[in-house]
């Protein structure tokens, strides 16, 4: 009985984190992006500096009509937002926040996380194919091309850390982590983060949803709550990517008073990375499709290969 209760409690906790952190990132994006453009951002909702803006947005989305185009593949069309969103929820279960704070300890944590994260992109592909819209299809195909290009450096960079730690358990990786890894694994960390951004289709890698060319890519035909779910998936993806980068490359809960405040360190590092995600979005223009592919195949993949070799040499020599 207690086991069931404990499991339920963990699931509820993860769900809470899953619902709160993306909104926090979204609100930070509203405000940080506004100030980076010398604006104020939302100021009215909720009274104090627009803190309730995303709640208001949620209410707005809930009120909107849920439209399915006549020519759409109804089942796939309706299922796509769930396929985009749920993998990130599942990934969150396996990410350790503190030394013993993980919803579900997995020995194959890294494998699990990478495999499930890749499923999330399927949501965009399904949406693009099922919408019966040329813009959606183009967006879906661009998503596919981007996934093909960036999944490889993403996984190779993660593999480098696993090699260094000698384990694929996420908790094990953080436990094996030492501060000098920051330098040793730096190229891998950068590649992991950049490739992750590209998989999330965040600017400057937002070619698949480039609104000035293809409206909103695969999500063009979506309205109301289903559209909101796609947006939520994007922000949940940011949280998951930042948490993963923290766990793999930034030492997770390592820091002063790690025994008591380990979870806080993980959280701080995650949010700092989320801020970097927003910062990059504001600073850089969108990459063209050919630039995207060139960056992946001529930039990131060779760097990760060098990183893998370096990791191998140092790990053997140690």
């Amino acid at each position: 009985m207690t086991e069931v209760l404990e499991a339920a409690l963990r699931v509820v906790l993860v769900l809470g984190v899953f619902l709160v952190l993306p909104l926090l990132v979204g609100q930070t994006e509203h405000k940080a992006m506004a100030h980076m453009q010398s604006r104020l951002g939302p100021m009215y909702a909720g009274g104090f500096h627009g803190w309730a803006q995303l709640v208001a947005d949620g209410v707005k989305f809930a009120q909107k009509e849920d439209i399915v185009p006549a020519a759409a593949d109804r089942t796939v069309f309706k299922l796509a937002p769930a396929v985009a969103l749920i993998p990130y929820l599942v990934v969150l279960v396996a990410i350790p926040i503190g030394p013993s704070m993980v919803a579900q300890k997995l020995d194959l944590g890294l494998f699990f996380v990478l495999a499930v994260m890749a499923v999330g992109v399927l949501g965009a592909l399904m949406a693009g194919w099922a919408s019966a819209n040329k813009f959606s299809l183009l967006g879906g195909l661009r998503t596919a091309a981007q996934l093909m290009a960036y999944e490889l450096p993403f996984i190779l960079a993660a593999a480098s850390v696993a090699m260094a730690a000698g384990t694929v358990s996420l908790t094990g990786i953080v436990e094996a982590w030492q501060p000098w890894w920051l330098l040793w694994q730096l190229p891998g960390a950068v590649v992991f983060f950049v490739a992750g951004l590209a998989e999330l289709q965040r600017p400057p890698f937002d070619m698949p949803v480039a609104d000035s060319e293809i409206i909103f890519g695969a999500f063009t035909e979506y309205t109301g709550l289903r559209f909101a779910l796609f947006l939520l998936a994007e922000y949940a993806g940011i949280v998951v990517l930042c948490a993963l980068t923290t766990v793999l490359f930034l030492g997770g809960w390592h820091g002063p008073f790690a025994d008591e405040l380990g979870w806080l360190w993980t959280l701080i590092k995650t949010m700092a990375l989320a801020f970097v995600v927003i910062w990059l979005r504001v600073s850089y223009p969108r990459l063209r499709e050919d630039q995207l592919q060139r960056l992946a195949w001529q930039g990131l993949v060779p760097v990760t290969l060098v990183q893998l070799a370096l990791t191998g040499v140092v790990a053997v020599a140690k």
């Binding site: 506004a34 100030h35 010398s38 604006r39 910062w279 504001v282």
Partner: peptide
Amino acid sequence: GLLQGLIVTMRTMLHRSVTDQ
């Protein structure tokens, strides 16, 4: 150039915004 872009946005963020309410 990439660094320059980041500096510009960060500097703008740390300055008062020009919006009149």
